[in-house]
């Protein structure tokens, strides 16, 4: 009996030895630098569009890498290397810091004041699914502020919001300072503003390691919602801090005849980001799948509004939002023309 058990356990041990794989712990600065450069080289999607010479970047940063770098110095160096891509969707993520490139809005006027927005909302505004909403201008204009496409909004939320605005002449959707989130919410909201399915753009993905190895552009459509819809005039308010899913929302809404975009150019961010990681466990995020507009053009650097309007210092001193006021005037003017 004992001999039999010894044989059995010996066999099990041999099987285990044969099947175990050692986790590779590769944490030298050089190895992590090489890994990051290669992952981006093989998977990033905007090298040619942005005219980034990634081999030149390698030469410049490789000289600065040595095994004497501590983790903070290495992180700063690798973060700077990623910033060469000028991409808000590209980050290095460690347990002590997240590298980022935010110049797409930091270098531009804010064109948004949260305090002034609150004055317009008043005290009795409603909140549904991350959307803050109220009526302006003697209840003629519906106003909704959506600060993040990560705030879940459901169809029932949208039903209630649009029903609340049923007697309004026009609708303002303010997405200034909206840094993005889920494309599903972008589609869900946009689906309330059209009667027929439309082509809104294209999506691609990388198919190989080459900088131009992409799949054929695959058409992206927007289908109308079967629920309560809004086909009266709409104004979307934008600034440079509208990014990613917010940029996607503007791209779709701009195609609709009753929609006018007012404010500043959006920040862009049309590359669908993927995550990976380095041997030392730091996370990476980078744009990997270009989302093209209906003319198969990139909107990575933003979408221009139909009407450029900037907030003036004079209006701000009076707690007035120049862009909201322009939107109200536009909606009233358009509703009177009909």
């Amino acid at each position: 009996m004992r001999r039999g058990l010894v044989i059995i356990y010996s066999l099990l041990f041999i099987f285990l030895l044969g099947s175990c794989e050692k986790g590779e712990m590769n944490r030298t600065p050089r190895e992590n630098f090489e890994s990051l450069w290669r992952i981006i080289d093989e998977n990033y999607c905007y090298f040619d569009y942005k005219d980034v010479d990634w081999n030149e970047v390698y030469d410049r940063y490789s000289r600065q890498v040595s095994d004497t770098l501590d983790q903070y110095e290495l992180f700063d160096l690798l973060g700077k290397m990623l910033a060469e891509l000028k991409d808000g969707h590209t980050n290095l993520i460690s347990s002590f810091n997240i590298s980022r490139y935010w110049k797409w809005y930091e270098d531009y006027p804010a064109n948004f004041s949260s305090d002034i927005k609150k004055k317009y909302l008043g005290e009795n505004y409603r909140i549904a699914g991350g959307m803050e909403y109220t009526k302006l201008k003697e209840d003629q204009i519906g106003y909704m502020y959506y600060g993040s496409f990560s705030s879940g909004i459901g169809d029932t939320n949208l039903d209630h919001i649009l029903y609340f605005f049923k007697d309004c002449k026009g609708l303002i959707i303010d997405i200034r300072d909206n840094g993005g989130g889920s494309l599903a919410y972008s589609d869900r909201i946009a689906a309330r503003f059209l009667n027929e399915k439309i082509l809104t753009g294209y999506i691609q993905h990388k198919t190989g390691k080459g900088h131009n190895d992409f799949s054929d552009p695959y058409p992206v459509y927007l289908e109308p919602s079967s629920r309560l819809k809004w086909l009266r005039p709409v104004v979307i308010l934008t600034n440079r801090h509208c990014y990613s899913a917010a940029n996607d929302f503007v791209q779709k809404m701009k195609l609709l005849p009753q929609v006018v975009i007012i404010g500043d150019q959006t920040g862009g961010g049309s590359g669908f980001p993927f995550n990976s990681e380095l041997p030392n466990g730091w996370g990476i995020r980078f744009s990997s799948s270009p989302m093209l507009d209906v003319d198969k053009q990139h909107t990575e650097f933003g979408i221009e509004p139909d009407i450029y309007v900037s907030m003036t210092a004079e209006d701000m001193q009076k707690d007035e939002d120049t862009i909201i006021e322009a939107a109200i005037a536009n909606l009233i003017s358009r509703s009177e023309q009909k």
Partner: peptide
């Protein structure tokens, strides 16, 4: 596919 999002597969 490599780097193909589930958004492209299932939503589109």
């Amino acid at each position: 596919h490599k780097l193909q999002s589930y958004y492209e597969i299932f939503s589109q």
